[in-house]
Simulated scan of single mutants.
Amino acid sequence: MTAPGMHPPSVPARAAKGLVLFVCCAVVIVPFITVVSTSLATREQVTRSGGMVFLPDEVSFAAYQAILSGGVVTRATMVSLFVTITGTALSLAATTLLAYGLSRRGSFAAKPFLMIVLFALLFTPGIIPAYLMVKSLGLIDTYWSLILPVMINAFNVIILRAFFMDLPEEVIDSARIDGAGDLAILWRIVLPLSKGVLAVVALFYAVSYWNAFFAALLYLNDISMWPLQLVLRTYVVNQTQVGVDQLGVAGADLPPQEAVQMAILVLSIIPILVVYPFVQRHFTKGVLIGAVKG
């Protein structure tokens, strides 16, 4: 049954919606298939197709074997994993503590700190002030330069604060009557009730750390410390040739340049594809936090 005044869409309308959905899916799926197929193509197929292969006739894992056998790509992958895991853990902990403090009534200087967070949300420092600050702290050529300047995101603080404020006050008050302190309430009551929104915020941070390359370009002068995304930008965007010394394989066994570039690209998106399905169901809840009152 349909609601009063509502009529089911006509056949042409449904066909038009299906066509638009099909086109949108094709725009996303076809390039992805092309990237994966090119990374699995042989030199003959890449040469015959002129660079990009849609569906390879023969599957070859030479590009993946080359980038994973040692050299700068493997090292860059380990760097990205370290920065992402460490940064996400520290950012989630700091954001949770700040948001919980701002959400509690009677917290010391809660309103001034909230104004600072909102100011940071609306206005961001420029490249030169940020670089001078990182340099003055002695963080140049250290991995902390990729974590500390962006450890707390104002938008994520607002999301967590809105969720914490919607938690039932009766539950927190009863725990306080039983003698629980603020940290005990946060650890034993608030965090178990906030698994969904924490998963969303953690994914936001993880994607941000994993995809970041500009900070590494500014603060890391040692190429051996570069994360995977900066290496990917150097190989693909700047069209830098991947050499024998970089991949650690013999020159005769070097796979085609296009296959290596696409293999690095696939390697860079695999972690997001693996993690995203587990937190997808929390996205709607996380986005709508604070949007509906009452």
Score class of each variant (00 low, 15 high):
Gly5Tyr: 04
Gly5Cys: 11
Ser10Gln: 06
Pro12Glu: 02
Ala13Tyr: 12
Arg14Tyr: 07
Ala15Val: 15
Ala16Val: 12
Leu19His: 05
Leu21Cys: 12
Phe22Ser: 15
Cys24Gln: 14
Ala26Asn: 05
Ala26Trp: 03
Ile29Cys: 11
Phe32His: 08
Val35Thr: 13
Thr38Gln: 02
Met52Gln: 08
Met52Trp: 14
Leu55Gln: 11
Asp57Val: 03
Val59Ile: 15
Val59Gly: 00
Ala63Ile: 09
Gln65Leu: 10
Ala66Asn: 06
Val72Ala: 13
Leu81His: 10
Thr86Gln: 04
Gly87Cys: 13
Gly87Trp: 14
Ala89Cys: 09
Leu90Glu: 08
Ser91Asn: 13
Ser91Asp: 07
Leu92Trp: 04
Ala93Arg: 03
Leu97Asn: 10
Leu98Pro: 15
Leu98Thr: 10
Gly106Met: 13
Ala110Val: 07
Phe113Trp: 14
Leu114Ser: 09
Ile116Ala: 15
Val117Gln: 09
Val117Cys: 00
Thr124Asp: 04
Gly126Arg: 00
Ile127Tyr: 00
Ile128Thr: 01
Ala130Phe: 00
Ala130Asn: 09
Leu139Ser: 09
Trp144Phe: 13
Ser145Phe: 13
Ile152Gln: 12
Asn153Gly: 13
Ala154Thr: 07
Leu160His: 12
Leu160Cys: 11
Phe163Asn: 09
Phe164Ala: 11
Met165Trp: 04
Glu170Ile: 13
Ile172Asp: 12
Ile172Ser: 11
Gly179Thr: 10
Gly181Lys: 13
Asp182Gln: 14
Leu183Gln: 06
Leu183Val: 14
Ala184Phe: 06
Ile185Glu: 11
Ile189Cys: 08
Val190Cys: 06
Pro192Ser: 11
Pro192Gly: 12
Ser194Thr: 05
Ser194Gln: 05
Lys195Trp: 12
Lys195Gln: 11
Leu203Gly: 07
Ala206Glu: 10
Val207Ala: 12
Val207Met: 14
Ser208Val: 01
Tyr209Ile: 14
Tyr209Ala: 04
Tyr209Arg: 12
Asn211Cys: 05
Phe213Met: 00
Phe214Ala: 10
Ala216Asn: 07
Ala216Ile: 02
Leu218Val: 13
Tyr219Leu: 00
Leu220Ile: 04
Leu220Cys: 05
Asn221Ala: 01
Asn221Thr: 12
Ile223Gln: 09
Ser224Trp: 00
Met225Phe: 12
Leu230Val: 03
Val237Arg: 10
Val237Lys: 08
Asn238Leu: 11
Thr240His: 08
Gln241Val: 15
Val242Asn: 07
Val242His: 06
Asp245Arg: 06
Leu247Ile: 15
Gly251Tyr: 07
Leu254Gly: 05
Val260Gln: 01
Met262Cys: 14
Ala263Met: 08
Leu265His: 03
Ile272Tyr: 02
Arg281Tyr: 01
His282Pro: 01
Phe283Thr: 02
Thr284Lys: 08
Lys285Thr: 07
Val287Gln: 09
Leu288Thr: 14
Leu288Gly: 02
Gly290Phe: 11
